[in-house]
Design a protein around this nucleic acid. Structure first.
Lengths: 210, 210
DNA sequence: GTTAGCATGTAAGGAGTTACATGATTTT
DNA sequence: AAAATCATGTAACTCCTTACATGCTAAC
């Protein structure tokens, strides 16, 4: 999210809220990285990964796959497996990443910036962290932590203005929400420390760290 | 979500994923219940309430308000406040609930069922819990808890099939996700107990509870 | 031999964001 | 006065779900 100043004084926030399809593309590339798969299986894995909440519909998955085919990020191979069967049968389509797809995956994974630490995007990136190096990992983890911290600050600031007559339940909900975010910040901090230690043990210890 | 059996054996899930607009309608009714407000303020309050994640855009709020006006759930009154000012100025519109709106709010709040314990819907309903009675509150809290528990079970089941070669980061993400849901279940359990105690102290103690 | 689950699609339609547009008031 | 923020809209476009459509395979 960037803030733009329009021709008069007013402020507009311009989008790039990371379309769901983009997130899915990245996830597909990541999954296929581990080996060929067909659509149906992809969908199951995807639902398990991003699954908190709504499930991925076929109406989203298949068109995305087609689009990736057109962009030749992936290739399909019709499973003509069992020799006896006639070819006319509806084939199971197995997808695999192409060279270009691998490069695109690597490019996306090494992107550092807002798109990397927005809710859904972060999850996917994190899931495939093994495919990046520590430097990127640290930057993404820290970016996300900063983002959450900002969110907390904003909420706390806004809350101090309205709170006054807080309703019992509304207040409880707020508290629970803040709690959840704080907990995620802690989780991130632990991960960041773990990354740093990993770095330290395998290379010469660097005593001072920012 | 209901499961329908089509003309052949296949299963279709039919929707009602609670449009965002519906959630907002409920929230607007709830907020106006506390007193008249204009759109801009409504938006701020709404963002603070549902705020985890995307913000509510004017492009969603104002049309929703218009729609509610048409349905006469709310009324507008142009603030002609300061006597000296000419009427031609762009007026600030203050909204308030109508009789019908109040009834609708009460109807929605006493709804018990899936729509009451889906993620976003639950939050809104919870925030306005003060406007319902304990019986409803308990049913909604328990409904939500059951839902989350089911989600946990499903995930655990699915995980046990795939887990085998769990990647370090993918695994960590799963663990964190499960943790979050488990924590919410605990939160709900505490609230349920609190409700029950509330009920017990104010009426004759009922020794056995299901 | 029927049910359930695996497997692949697509067209229509709706919901909601984005970007544009403008005016009033308060703060610096 | 300029800048920020309060305040109210709307049209176009985009994305995604929904619902329909079909076929194969394993299990009961």
């Amino acid at each position: 999210m960037y803030r733009l100043f329009g021709f008069r004084g007013y402020i507009t926030t311009i989008g790039r809220v990371a379309r769901r399809a983009e997130t899915i593309e990245l996830a597909v590339l990541g999954l296929l990285h581990e080996g060929p798969m067909h659509g149906y299986e992809l969908r199951k894995r995807l639902n398990l990964m991003l699954g908190w909440g709504r499930v991925l519909s076929y109406g989203t998955l298949y068109p995305t796959l087609k689009k990736m085919l057109r962009g030749s990020l992936i290739e399909e191979s019709l499973a003509t497996s069992t020799p006896g069967t006639p070819v006319s049968k509806r084939p199971r389509i197995t997808y695999q990443v192409t060279e270009a797809g691998t490069r695109e995956f690597e490019r996306l994974m090494s992107e550092v910036g807002p798109t990397a630490w927005e809710d859904d995007n972060f999850d996917i990136r994190f899931a495939f962290f093994s495919s990046t190096d520590m430097e990127i990992r640290l930057r993404v983890l820290e970016g996300r932590r900063t983002r959450l911290q900002e969110r907390l600050d904003r909420i706390q600031r806004e809350l101090s203005l309205t709170q006054a007559e807080a309703d019992r339940y509304a207040g409880e909900l707020q508290r629970h929400g803040v709690d959840r975010v704080e907990r995620e910040v802690m989780w991130l901090s632990d991960l960041i420390n773990a990354e740093r230690n990993l770095g330290n043990t395998s290379s010469t210890p660097t005593p001072e760290q920012a």
